[in-house]
């Protein structure tokens, strides 16, 4: 089944990397097909940045995202620019501390940034917490695949912290 996943937040949160990690998990470790695209340009620095992934069990022909069924939104500006038009059947994970608005579709409030700052001690891993929550809340890729993709993508020496963040995300997603 085809899933279209859209990530948005502000530049520096790592939402583009989140999209790359998710695509990597699907294409390299879950034996699925994935296409990752993103919006390039001035928006990517500071403003609302956006990355997206198409995941499917069969080869992906049309590569673009037209109507995402899964949203991961990590800033208010990101919500306004890339989340506000979410369809009724979509699912949205939003960082409860950073996004004030709520969509019309089903949504889960994930306190990713406060978890990252508090329990984990590093705000920078908020995106990884979010990915963990996304995986357990939607099952779009397997836990094993996402863990391998995270380990491929994070700087050396930060593996332990990132896996911890991911597992915390799994818990938050299960509860959601």
């Amino acid at each position: 089944m085809r899933h279209e996943i859209r990530f948005s937040g502000y530049g520096g949160q790592g939402v583009l990397l989140s999209a790359v990690i998710l695509g990597r998990a699907a294409a390299l470790y879950d034996d699925k097909y994935a296409v990752q695209t993103q919006v390039y340009g001035p928006e990517a620095r500071g403003g609302a940045s956006m990355g997206q992934v198409v995941i499917d069990d069969e080869p992906i022909l049309y590569p673009e995202v037209t109507e995402p069924d899964i949203f991961v939104i990590m800033s208010q500006q990101g919500f306004e620019k890339y989340g506000i038009r979410a369809g009724k059947d979509a699912v949205m994970l939003l960082d409860a501390d950073l996004v004030r608005s709520r969509p019309d579709c089903r949504y889960y409030e994930i306190p990713a940034t406060s978890e990252a700052k508090g329990t984990l001690g590093r705000e920078i891993v908020a995106n990884i917490v979010m990915i963990g929550a996304l995986v357990t809340a939607t099952g779009v890729v397997s836990r094993e695949a996402i863990e391998r993709a995270v380990l491929d993508s994070v700087p050396k020496g930060t593996e332990e912290l990132n896996v911890k963040a991911l597992k915390r995300g799994f818990e938050l997603g299960e509860r959601a």
């Binding site: 790359v20 390299l28 994935a34 296409v35 990752q36 695209t37 390039y40 992906i60 673009e64």
Partner: peptide
């Protein structure tokens, strides 16, 4: 083009 140049696939 920019689509194929910037997209990621296996």
């Amino acid at each position: 083009d920019e689509i194929v140049g910037h997209m990621r696939e296996r």
